[in-house]
Simulated scan of single mutants.
Amino acid sequence: MENFAKKVKTFDAFPKVDPQHQVRSERGGFTTLVTYLFGLLIIWIEVGGYIGGYVDRQFIVDDKIHSDLTINVDMIVGMPCQFLHTNVEDITQDRYLAGETLNFEGIHFFVPPTFRINNPNDFHETTDLDEVMQESLRAEYRAEGARVNEAAPACHIFGSIPVTQVRGDFRITGKGFGYRDRSHVPFEALNFSHVIQEFSFGEFYPFLNNPLDATGKITEEKLQSYMYYAKVVPTLYEQLGLEVDTNQYSLTESQYVIQIDEATQKPVGVPGIYFRYDFEPIKLVIREKRIPFFQFVAKLGTIGGGILIAAGYLFKLYEKLLVILFGKKYVEKGTEKKQGGLLDNEVDQKRDE
């Protein structure tokens, strides 16, 4: 058995130091204590990271065309509802009268105090996963196609418009401008000042932020035209098995005043508010992940071993610097050789005699 133990010992990748070659010191004890505390801190951080997981972002090809997609709108336009015409037209020339599903409520025009007015809406960042999960309360508009007090000075337009997931645009114009209509809005009644509370694509999550939310434009021009261009990216959020399938979009915009032809005294163009959108052929997937448990254990073992090895080398370097700066006697002061060697046993026997 002893021979077997000796043979195994020769293959030990980390041979142990014999007790007679070990030395105790205050500096060594302090270094050991600091190393253990630092190791516990690292383990605590790694365990917290494992429990909290990490956020993984990936782009995949979106090979699905959703025919039941909706545009969610909640805005106020500074002219009476009875003068407004709304419709949607996509790239296939398919038109949909948005007024059949949208609700029109006559009110007085006002600007909420927190809204951004006449500012360029060219900045948008992807919402954090935790924020989406906290604010992902799905809702629906209670009414559809309602018309109330249409002669009021301003019009509150809200509701959801069913569209196909292809390029298109949603238009808000005056009656008689751009489309044949029984009535024609006089120039002096046109006013396309507007504030937008909600403009989003897909399922209606009223508490998720979008680039056009809480924005607006105010103008005194009668023939004003506003153009909003949205690049829509389908986005899937996933956390602990819960999924929020929504859409986010980037935005650019332009605006101009339409001129009047001097010969015909008619505007060269159609004033109004235009929302042009296009869907990207990719999908952003944002999900929370955790590394496998055995991989986590192996990672902890690797980190622990690395800390011990690094601490050993740093302590040796520190001891050598002390020898160079203060001499060997200073370094050996306060040290205590550990008992257990053969010579120590002989010395103890002589003292006992």
Rank of each mutant, 00 (worst) to 15 (best):
F275N: 03
K320T: 09
N209K: 06
I286M: 14
W44G: 12
V270A: 00
A311C: 10
M79D: 00
R290D: 04
G341R: 12
K9V: 09
L284K: 15
S200C: 04
L129G: 11
V331T: 06
V244L: 10
T114C: 08
D90A: 03
D18W: 00
G28W: 01
V166F: 06
L321M: 08
G340F: 07
E198I: 04
K283A: 12
I76V: 15
I71C: 00
G341L: 09
A189Y: 01
R95E: 15
M227P: 00
A230N: 09
E100V: 02
E332G: 02
V55L: 03
N118I: 01
R290G: 03
R147D: 03
K316T: 13
K283Y: 02
R182F: 07
E26W: 09
V47C: 10
L33D: 02
E346L: 10
K338N: 08
D94R: 14
I43M: 12
L190Q: 02
L251C: 04
G39T: 15
P162T: 00
S250V: 13
D74V: 01
I218E: 03
E280S: 09
K329V: 12
V73A: 14
E220T: 12
T252C: 03
S25Y: 04
E46H: 08
Q255L: 02
A5I: 08
G49W: 11
Q248P: 00
S136D: 09
K329H: 08
V331R: 13
K9Q: 11
G39E: 13
R351I: 13
P234K: 00
T235N: 15
T126E: 04
G341S: 12
L69F: 03
K217E: 15
Y237V: 04
K316F: 09
G341V: 07
G312K: 13
I71D: 02
F11H: 07
R287G: 08
D62Y: 05
V257A: 05
K7W: 02
T264Q: 03
V23M: 12
Q134E: 12
E353H: 14
V8E: 11
R138I: 10
M133Y: 13
I260V: 15
Q58G: 06
I161V: 15
Y277A: 06
T114I: 08
A5Q: 12
Q255E: 11
E131T: 15
G272M: 01
I107R: 02
E188M: 04
D63S: 11
A298Q: 08
T10W: 13
Q239A: 10
K217Y: 15
A139W: 07
